[in-house]
Write a protein that binds this DNA or RNA. Structure first.
Lengths: 143, 143
DNA sequence: TTATTTAGTCTACAATCGTAAACAACAAAT
DNA sequence: ATTTGTTGTTTACGATTGTAGACTAAATAA
């Protein structure tokens, strides 16, 4: 069966998905109103994005009376995880640690988030290597 | 003075930058050889990317004899930090913590990276809020 | 000096993106 | 029934991206 090719969500489309995920479902007029306020987009722009997301399979539309109601067909957390994992995969592996540290320094994390992270790190420390090599050049031992 | 507009580096261009950062400087033939092996790109493709990066101001070319030598004009770690920060800025703030935890679980971090992260987290814990709200909808208290 | 290799510049071209107007179809108001 | 408003569909259009061929100038080899 058509192994569902990776859905690519663009930046603008991502904003639409966020709203959909948060509300669970939306009508286009609702979305238009929200995006007008949040992004300053015209109604037509929102319609285009909804259409593209439907075509990509990230949203599903259900006809209710005259209008459609839109529902996300992909989950939020996995989508976020994937976007982040993909980005980190393109960075020099030797520097992801520092990058992560810089990032954590800037993010707004809750007490729970921090405790959670600490747990993950503690466990990870038990099997972590002494060093991680640069992987920016081809061939085995780059750098 | 022309406040240097944010340099946007595309995915393909990013691969070129990684090599440049790692080597410090490269000739186009060297880069072509590396990218042929690493990415399977034709020489012409590499030339295009080098040209675009020059135009964007991410690389600088110095003529040495017949050929140019290319040097990065932006630093690696700040560029990485920014790419990552930008991505996280587009995600639901309520979920960045979990996303980070999932990410850390997957990344290959060194003992040092982990220790470093733990330090940053410990400090952060002293001022972290109890919770972080969703910011996917406009208006103050979304969600 | 002429043919050949090499490195740089210009042109190409389809796909995706951001941004939106134009048009169509149907429901609601008059 | 006709006008008007709402919602969906089609078309547009320039910019960026990935991918690369073509052409050109300079250096080298024959």
């Amino acid at each position: 069966m058509e192994a569902q090719t990776k859905i690519e969500i663009s930046d603008a489309e991502w904003e639409v998905m966020r709203v959909t995920w948060t509300l669970g479902n939306v009508t286009s007029s609702q979305m238009a109103e929200i995006m007008a306020e949040k992004m300053g987009w015209k109604t037509a722009t929102v319609k285009t994005l909804l259409g593209r997301l439907i075509k990509k399979g990230a949203l599903r539309a259900e006809k209710h009376g005259r209008a459609f109601t839109y529902y996300p067909t992909v989950d939020e957390q996995p989508s976020m995880d994937e976007a982040v994992t993909t980005l980190f995969g393109h960075l020099c592996q030797m520097r992801v640690g520092q990058t992560l540290a810089d990032l954590v320094g800037q993010l707004n994390l809750s007490q729970n988030d921090i405790a959670n992270l600490q747990t993950v790190l503690a466990k990870k420390a038990t099997t972590a290597p002494a060093t991680v090599d640069c992987d920016c050049l081809p061939g085995e031992t780059s750098c």
